[in-house]
Every structure is written in C-alpha cells, then in structure tokens.
C-alpha cells in the first residue's frame, strides 16, 4: 500500500466510523443513559430507511422525506415509550431483552406486510450526487462526505445537549438517581418519553440518510444492532464522545482489517472490543 492509498483508506475508515456513530448514537442515549437494553434499536433504523423510501417516492424529494420522517419518528417514539418501554424501567434486563426482541419480530413482520420483501433504492439528492476524483480511476461520492459532516454535527449537538443544556442536566440527574431527581421536581416520566423519542429518532434518521448508499432491504436492522452495541460498549456506556471515538476506531479496524488481513476481516472488530475491555472493562470513557 503506497502512502496515497493509505490516506484514502484512512478516509474510508473515518467515513465508515462516522456512519457507525450515527447509527449507534441513539443507542448511547437509550442504553447508556436510560439503562434500557433496546434490541429493537436496529428496527428503528430499518423503519427510518423504509420511511425515507416511501416518503421520498411520495414527495419526490429526500430532504422533505427526511423532515416528515423525523416528525413521524418522534411521534412513534413517544407512542412506543408510552405503550411499551415505560413498563420496563423498573424491571430486570431480562424483561427488557424479551420485550425488545419481541418488538423486532413485530417490526419485521409489519415491514413484510407493508413493504414486501424486495430490495428498494432511494435516490441521492441531485445537489449531492456528484463525486470528487481522488486518483485516475477512483472518486469519492459527495453524498458520503455529506453524511460524515452530518455525523460530526450530530456528535457536537448531542454533546452540547447532554452537557450544556438544562434538559441534558435533567437527563443526567434522572440517570444518576431517578427518585432524587423526581423529589427535586423533575418530571421524570415526561423526560424519559422525550429521551426515548430522541433515541428512536436518531436511529430512524440514521436509516433515512444511509438509505441512498445502503439500499433498503429486509433484515437491515439486524445487521446494525450488534455493531451498535459494540460501539456503545467500547466507548463507555453513556458517553457520547466515547461512542464517537469507538465508532471511528471500529471504522479503522474494519477498513484496514479487510485490506491487510482479509482472511480474518470478520474478527478484527471483535478482537478490538476484547482488547479494549481487557484494558478498560468499563469502556474508554465511562462516566457516571
């Protein structure tokens, strides 16, 4: 590998890592802050992608589709929290796994009934459809760079929200000690509804903006959920920066694993996780 290829592979790794962060960021909130093991997070990603597909076909414009889709996702998040998730806060992790696993099955069947089992494509918006030449025969799609930019913005926004705003303070207080926060007059129930809706919307949003590059297909949620948990665990549960760093590390290890150790490419990510956990069992940035 010459130096220039190396730089391009670095870009690939960074870009993949940022995409992973986008998918995992909602999980960081729901799993990291609310303490819910939400296996259905991948299904929300899938719901987002299919929403983007349908709404883009309906409105003819991905941007409008994303705006509409985000609104629908917030509503869906509130509804699901109210119907299902609020009964889980006080319960053991096993109940959470059972219920959220059940939701996966429900969402997959709904998907099959509503949209069928075909593979669908979503068009890239025209103003982002160009590409930048890197070598004589390789170019980089602008849309992928745009996704990276959005991921960075979201990472900053989440950090700001959780660390610098009143809402973030309440979220952290609720996560640290639910009863005490309640005693201080914070409406925890409402707060958790908001946080859960935000988490679901982040996953759905990731599905929406990833749809043009990944296509839309059955079981797509199942493919992202494991890697999302890996990101959250490596990063340190509840840490936005940790998740970002972990996602980029995984992006790099996956990219260079495929190039340098093609025979073992399936292992590199999990090897990385094992090493990090040996070194820091609580993840890179464990915060309380």
């Amino acid at each position: 590998m010459d130096f220039y290829s190396f730089l391009i592979q670095l870009l690939n790794g960074l870009q993949y890592g940022l995409l992973l962060f986008l998918v995992a960021s909602g999980l960081t909130l729901v799993f990291g802050i609310m303490g819910i093991i939400n296996l259905a997070h991948g299904s929300f990603y899938m719901v987002g992608a299919y929403l983007a597909f349908s709404l883009a076909a309906l409105t003819g414009n991905l941007l409008t589709a994303v705006l509409l889709g985000v609104t629908l996702s917030v509503l869906l998040g509130m509804l699901l929290e109210w119907l299902f998730y609020r009964h889980l806060y006080a319960r053991d992790h096993l109940y959470q796994v059972l219920m959220t696993y059940g939701l996966i099955l429900v969402f997959e069947e709904l998907r099959s009934i509503l949209w069928g089992d075909d593979v669908h494509g979503v068009a890239v918006p025209v103003f982002l459809s160009g590409s930048i030449p890197l070598t004589d025969n390789l170019s980089y799609p602008v849309y992928r760079l745009a996704i990276s930019g959005i991921c960075l913005l979201l990472a900053g926004g989440l950090y700001w929200l959780i660390r610098k705003t009143r809402l973030g303070m309440m979220i952290r207080a609720g996560a640290a000690n639910r009863e005490m926060a309640q005693a201080l007059g914070i409406n925890i129930e409402w707060l958790y509804t908001v946080v859960f809706a935000l988490g679901l919307t982040l996953a759905a949003f990731a599905g929406m903006i990833a749809a043009p590059v990944s296509s839309v297909y059955p079981n797509m949620g199942g493919e992202v959920i494991i890697i999302s948990f890996v990101v959250v665990v490596i990063g340190g549960i509840g840490s936005v920066w940790g998740a970002l760093l972990a996602a980029i590390l995984i992006g790099m290890s996956d990219t260079f694993g495929k190039v340098l150790l093609p025979e073992y490419a399936g292992m590199t990510t999990y090897l990385l996780m094992a090493l990090v956990l040996l070194w820091r069992p609580e993840g890179l940035f464990r915060r309380t």
Binding site: D2, Q9, Q15, T135, L138, E223, T255, G266
Partner: peptide, 17 residues
C-alpha cells in the same frame, strides 16, 4: 468480506490501486 458485511469502500479503493 465477512458475510453479510456490506462496507465495500476499503476493497474498492484497493481495486482502484
């Protein structure tokens, strides 16, 4: 690629080289 991984970018870069 490990099945069913769909992150092709690294390998496409290699093909170009």
């Amino acid at each position: 690629l490990p099945f069913p991984n769909v992150e092709f970018q690294a390998l496409l870069t290699e093909i170009a080289a």
